[in-house]
């Protein structure tokens, strides 16, 4: 039905890309068990909160790296 099925070829994610994406995935889920502490306090924030904010901001970096691996 669609004339031009896709403007670019499908990108295949290799094992490295999945591995890179898995790191933040496990960090924000299972990793929390190990980060469930108040100390060390940074800028007044409890460590658990600092840890989560760090990983939210690091997720794009890991996904970007995974995306670059997929391009090659």
């Amino acid at each position: 039905m669609n004339e031009d099925i896709s403007p670019q070829p499908a990108k295949r994610l290799g094992p490295t890309a999945y591995l890179l994406a898995a790191i933040p995935f496990f960090a924000v889920s299972f990793g929390v068990c190990f980060a469930n502490r108040d100390e060390p306090v940074l800028f007044g924030f409890p460590f658990l909160l600092t840890y989560l904010i760090f990983w939210i901001c690091a997720t794009p970096l890991f996904l970007w790296l995974a995306d670059r691996r997929a391009r090659q």
């Binding site: 994406a21 933040p24 658990l48 909160l49 989560l52 997720t59 995306d67």
Partner: peptide, 20 residues
């Protein structure tokens, strides 16, 4: 209190799923 932090954690996790 801290259980509310789950709201911060599930969104990046969902976006990783979206990416993959």
């Amino acid at each position: 209190g801290a259980p509310a932090f789950y709201i911060l954690a599930y969104l990046p996790l969902g976006l990783i799923m979206l990416f993959l």
